[in-house]
């Protein structure tokens, strides 16, 4: 980006982007750890994820304050304004992603008979896809890369397809093993949460595309 005449403005924007990246990093780790905790039944790891969410919320507040301050004091125009607006919205979305990770972590204790509970093995693959999307979208944000953002948007179809297949799989598992219905139902929510993480990564990707080019990406039918 070209430098601004007012040096402090550059510093503010840089700090804003730094905060978003920090939030994203926390969310990324939370997704991974919540899934690990779910598969291994590691409740102390789950506890850590729940605690981390507070930090994410705190940074979101920081981002809000800073963005409002930038708008009020510097009256940014054109791509600078887009940058600030996008940051404001992305912060909200990442906060939601953090919440979903927290929700997954909260359900760790609810799964019984983990060793013999076979549908659990389906989750990591789906979680990987969603985590990959979040990773890529944050990289796209860091490099202001609209192409990579579009790629993330396209990847969402895979997560959705995966969700549908897990859904069917879990329902048939419930029919065959009524004893595990409560665990399987919890798993359905987890799968739904992962699916929502994918959707939100898509939202961030749209913002990244908007901040970089000024246009929202064309709607693809999925």
């Amino acid at each position: 980006m070209p430098e601004h005449t007012v040096k402090a403005f550059d510093e503010d924007i840089t700090r804003l982007r730094g905060l978003i990246a920090e939030m994203g990093g926390l969310a990324e780790v939370s997704i991974q750890e919540s899934l690990d905790a779910m598969v291994q039944g590691n409740e102390s790891l789950a506890e850590k994820v729940v605690k981390r969410d507070r930090k994410i919320d705190a940074i979101e507040t920081d981002v809000d304050k800073l963005a409002v301050r930038i708008i009020a004091l510097r009256a940014p125009m054109a791509d600078d304004l887009r940058e600030v607006i996008a940051a404001l919205k992305i912060a909200g979305v990442i906060e939601r992603i953090g919440d979903y990770a927290k929700n997954i972590a909260r359900r760790v204790g609810e799964i019984e008979g983990r060793k013999r509970f076979e549908p659990l093995t389906l989750l990591p693959a789906m979680g990987d896809l969603a985590a990959e999307m979040v990773h890529d979208v944050l990289t796209a944000y860091a490099s202001r890369d609209p192409e990579l953002a579009l790629e993330v948007i396209r990847a969402d179809a895979k997560v959705d397809a995966f969700y549908n297949s897990i859904f069917r799989n879990l329902v048939s598992h419930m029919v065959e093993n009524p004893a595990t219905i409560s665990s399987a139902a919890q798993l359905l929510f987890v799968a739904k949460n992962i699916e929502r993480i994918g959707d939100h990564a898509t939202n961030v990707a749209e913002m990244v595309h908007f901040a970089a080019t000024g246009d929202y990406p064309p709607d693809e039918d999925n």
Partner: peptide
């Protein structure tokens, strides 16, 4: 990526440990 020069270091390293 070459974009990291002049950015906040947190943009390049967003992992909590790194931050």
């Amino acid at each position: 990526g070459s974009h990291l020069v002049d950015q906040d270091a947190r943009v390049a390293f967003r992992h909590p440990e790194a931050i």
